[in-house]
Every structure is written in C-alpha cells, then in structure tokens.
Design a protein around this nucleic acid. Structure first.
Lengths: 347, 347
DNA sequence: TGAGACCATTTGATCGATCCATTCACTCGC
DNA sequence: GCGAGTGAATGGATCGATCAAATGGTCTCA
C-alpha cells in the first residue's frame, strides 16, 4: 500500500498524505477540491492526515495540470514620485487584501526600459502562463495595454473607464471624479463661496475633462459664473502655484475665493502661492484637492480633498476577476463608485 | 517525427517547437538553458522556430521540475496611512525593477486578519512551494517573521538590521539612519545653529535609538549640549506638534533654533506648531525630517529631509537573493548604505 | 436470485518542462 | 581499418497534482 514511504526531509505530497491516511491519491485530492464526494468518516481521516503532515498542495503541479496559476499580474511603472503614485500604493494594498480572500495572489512586474513596445512584460507572462489575468490601472486615452490585451482575448479588469472607446468589452471599475468635484463645489457654495476657481489639467485628458465637467456644470446649476476662473496645465506643484498667482492677479471683485483642484499636487501648489502672498488657506480663501494623499493629511493647514474609495474599487475589481475566470457572463461591464469629501482646515 | 502536430489554438510547447525545428525536445530545452551545448547552426534553427511560434516556456512545468518558482514573496501589511507606507511604495517599485533583471518576480501577499499567528501567509506560500524566498521589511526588535523564517531555514533577505540579534545568520541590507542624522546636524551647525532639538520615538525602538544616537553623538562632537533638547513619543503628527510646543515653551535663551526629527510625520507636526505660533520654518527656526516623503517635497515651505537610497537597497537585496538561491556562500552578511540629505526651505 | 443503479474509492494517463543515461556521428591515432 | 574519444542530439523517466474512466461494494426491485 505504501509505494512512497521515504517521508524524508522533503515536503509532503499527495502520495505521502494518501499513505498516511490509508487512501489513494485521488481521494486526498477530492478531500481538498470536492469534499462532498467523500464519506464523512473518510474525509475526517484524510483531513487529520493533512493536518498532521502540514501538507499544502504544490502550486506548480496544480497549475500545470489545471492550467490556472491563481495569480493576477499588475504592472507597476517606474516610480514617479507624485501623488498619483501614492494612490497606487493604497490600491495595491487593497487589491492584495481582496485577492487573498479569493485564493489569488498579486504578481508585480514592470515593463523593461524600452518603452516602445507597450506589450512588454504582459506578453511574456501571458505566453508562459504565469498569470491567469491582469489588472490594468492607467486607462488614459487609447491605452495601448488595454487595447492589446482586449485584442488578444486575455482576461483583464481595468481600474478606469475605457474612455472614448464605447466598443470596449472588458469589465472595469472607476471612481466618479465628476461627482467628487460636484461635492467639492457644493461644499464650498454652502460655505458661502461664489467665485470658485478650477485648477486642472490640459485638455486631452478624459479624466481631467470629467472632473472639470463637475465644476462647470455644478457652478451653472448653482447659478454661478465660471468665466475667467479656469486654469489648465501640467500636474505639477509649479503649475498649481503659477495658476493661483494668475487667478488672484485681478481686481478685488473678480478674485476667486475658493480653488478646486484636479489633484493634491496642484492644490499644494496653490497653497504655496497663498504662502507667498501672505494668504491663509481656510480663512482668506478655500482650497480643495483631489486624492486625499498623505500630503493632504499632514499639510498645515490640513487640505480638504476628495478621497477615492480604493478599498471598494479593489473589491469590485476582484469580483469581476472572479466572474471572468469562472467564465461566467458579466451583465454589467462597468462599475462606478462615488468618492467622498474629506473636509479639513483649508475650506 | 511529429508526434505533436495538433498546433491548434493552444500555446506552443517544447514539443511543438521541436517539431518545427526538426529536433528533439531536449535540444530545444538546451537551446534555452545551455546554448553552448548546441552546434551554432542547430542553435540558430531552434531559435528561429522559437521566434516564429512565439514560444515561452511554461512556468508551472518548469517550476515543477526544477523546484524553483522564480518568485520572491513580499508581505504587505494592511495599509496604515503614514509616511512609512509611502516609503514601502518606493521600495517595492525598486524591488520589482531589480528583480526583473534577474528573471525573478515579486509576489505580494498579506497576513490574514488574525494577527496572532505571525507565520500566517509565509507558511502557506512556503509549503506550497509558491515562492523561492522572501523579502522581509520590518525588522523591529524581535521580529517574529524573521526569527521564524530563519529557524525554518527558509531563504530570505531582510531590509533592516537584525537589531539586538547578533546570532542572526541571514543577509540583510540597511540604511545608516545614524549617519543621516549626523549629516542633518552638521548641516544645521554649518547654518549657524547651536541649540538643535531632537524629536523622536519612544525608547525601545532600535531604529529610533540609532537615529537618536547620531544626534547625541554629533552634538557632543561639535561641542554642543543636548540638555533639555530631546522629546520622545509616538510617530504621529500630534506628538510632533506637542513636542515642538513643549520644547519652545522655555525662556528665550534656552529655546531651540532647529529641530531634527525621526520622521517626516513628526516634522510635519513641528511645522504645524510653527504655524500656530506664527513662526516661519527656515527663517525663525529650522526643521529637518526623515524619509523624504512626498509630503516633504510638496509642503510649503519645502521640508529638508533625509532620503534613504531605496533604489540601491533594492539592488543589494536582489544581489543577496541571487547568492542565496544559487547556494553560494555569502561572505558579508550585512550591507549598510548611506542616506543623503535633501535640503529645502525649512533649513 | 440476479440485473441494474448508485456510491465511494482507485488506477492509469496527462499537463510541459528538465534530469539522466544512452545513442549517434565523426575525428583521430596506431 | 578499427577501437577509443569527443561532441551533439535523442528517448525515457520524473516532478506532483488533476482528469477521465474503471473498480468493487451495497442496495433496490423485478
């Protein structure tokens, strides 16, 4: 009965456990994967043996046979130190937590230096069957990764809408940036502000236009003018500072009393200009950022900011992954979550 | 010759490539793993076939046979939003970059909710042979993870010294916090400061004591007193603010003119108190933080801070991993890197 | 009593790569 | 001309799990 009695120092296998419990390999396998097939007493005996030997199925062997690695790939791009990056960090943490509950793990990878080939990294992991699916995070306009994955028929879930690509058929999760900005505008209007400025990104960014539309529309809904209150440029501290200087450099009646920004980075730039001009955020004028970064939390004064519910995003992403990998039809291809406003001293 | 001519939609395997090139499986395998064994013309023929079919070896099959997954595990703990977390982010990015060059990948995992069992997560991945080694990041006093891994004989590299455990035999990489603080003190002395305060963590933290020792010793080396200039508490914004208030609440001659902090979080707390008291960092008193977080970069005024060379740390960690997994003897078990001071407006 | 249905369990084959031992081809020396 | 020696390529076995099909046993009902 014991064709494998070497029980030496090497890790226990199915055969080891089978011997220990006095059953066959397949029965042990069933105890793990389809316990309902076993008679209760047999199941108990096998489970006891598994426990006793400290057995865990070998992942490589299982993957080889089932053609499923139970890994999802996530590409992390070379660290650009800005708030967007810190955002990713929160998301990654949440993603790891969520995947854990479903028995999956997150595999990180990066493209190689040569940026010309966007499929780099994805392609390799895919062909070697290293991962079952991908999570794609930066879905800016015409994201080549998403397009390529879709074309290849690779399972993936995107964090971010397929902006401007109505034909996209992959599941995605996104945060309603527009709603976040609307909440910010409402908050400021309720605080008595009427001249509320926008400091955002250049045209061409769908995300930027989405957020800005919240400002434009809600200002009009509230009966307020947006004229001469909008600034657009790069997502840098410098541009935020420059934009604030320009917006404030008008006659007193025209001057904005509040600034809504497309990112915390821009908001911190606005605060820098306030400091230069001797203005006090929260007293002389209000500022609201976007992302609720650590900088927003520890800055003085504390920066009011729109917080993305990344924990919920991760949960939704993993839910979609589960459906996708179980080959279940997915009725709703997209899921939009609402951010919340974290009010601090600058407003 | 072609026992595998199904070349259907499924991914190519060694056998497929072998057929295509008119050689045997083993020859294709050798072309990948020991190309010097092949005759140049055969090698070229095989490589052409690999290229043509877009073949990548199946990782699961390879892992099963070689008993090596080419994955390293990294445990990410539930996101605590502070600067330490942002630090991890930079490190993870660098680690992914460094491992890529050696053909390894980073697998993220987390402990389950039950925190009582420190081995949770590690144990599972280990027994299922999912990873070849681990990278451990938080090596505070008596870190149970490191101790357990060492005891089990699992290969791992630590980011952080095995504080207070001279018997430790695992490789580690660390940043010389003491040297960073010494550089900060020197910088401040050169700027004309003599009463330089320390705002740090409670006793019991080896890292905290290491950093503090840089302050104590360098102050004495410079012939300066440290009396009544030290505050210790939690690593929070609130404590930093409280400590600054207390340190400044003395008669004018006794008052510190500079603050060196054990973290950016504490430094931001100090800045908050400055703001309350109407003081201007960089003019009325200097402040230096530690970690060069994003908050330090975008704060107004910009916070001078000690920056850890995490990119180099990652490279060293991966180098050690390579030695460890190749079973090469490791002569130097530890590697200490020197941080640099990023000077900004607060000093 | 025996054919048929049904259940728990077992056996052999397989996933795709690498290890090991062997075979083949070819040169060289005597 | 023939065995030794070398380099190149091959074939069978194997890693540890799961799949697919077969086995033996118990129970039901004609």
């Amino acid at each position: 009965m014991s064709r494998r009695t070497d029980a030496g120092s090497s890790a226990p296998t199915l055969a080891t456990v089978a011997d220990e419990a006095g059953v066959s390999r397949q029965t042990v396998s069933n105890a793990l994967n389809s316990p309902e097939l076993l008679r209760p007493d047999t199941l108990a005996r096998v489970q006891a043996a598994i426990e006793r030997l400290g057995y865990s199925p070998n992942r490589a062997a299982r993957s080889l046979r089932t053609r499923a690695s139970h890994l999802v790939g996530l590409r992390v791009d070379p660290a650009i130190e800005d708030s967007a990056n810190a955002l990713m960090d929160r998301f990654v943490h949440s993603l790891v937590e969520s995947t854990r509950e479903t028995g999956y793990h997150v595999l990180l990878f990066s493209g190689d230096g040569a940026d010309d080939d966007a499929t780099e990294g994805y392609d390799e992991l895919l062909r070697s069957a290293a991962v079952d699916a991908f999570v794609v995070t930066d879905t800016y306009r015409g994201n080549p990764h998403a397009a390529w994955l879709a074309q290849q028929g690779v399972p993936f879930v995107a964090f971010g809408r397929p902006w401007g690509e109505p034909a996209a058929r992959h599941p995605w999760v996104d945060v309603d940036g527009r709603a976040g900005v609307i909440a910010a505008v409402d908050h400021l209007v309720e605080r008595g502000h009427a001249r509320i400025a926008w400091v955002g990104w250049q045209k061409g960014s769908f995300i930027g236009e989405d957020r800005r539309s919240g400002w434009v529309d809600q200002m009009h809904t509230r009966g307020l003018s947006t004229s001469r209150l909008s600034a657009r440029g790069d997502d840098t501290l410098e541009f935020g500072a420059r934009a604030a200087r320009a917006l404030l450099d008008v006659e007193a009646g025209e001057r904005p009393t509040a600034f809504v920004c497309a990112s915390d980075t821009l908001a911190m730039g606005v605060l820098r200009t306030f400091d230069e001009l001797g203005l006090r955020a929260g007293r002389d004028a209000a500022v609201v950022g976007f992302d609720d970064s650590i900088a927003a939390q520890v800055a003085t004064p504390g920066l009011t900011s729109v917080r993305q519910p990344l924990e919920e995003v991760a949960v939704e992403v993993v839910r979609y992954l589960g459906e996708l990998l179980a080959h279940r039809p997915i009725p709703d291809l997209g899921s939009v979550l609402t951010p919340t406003l974290r009010v601090r001293e600058t407003s």
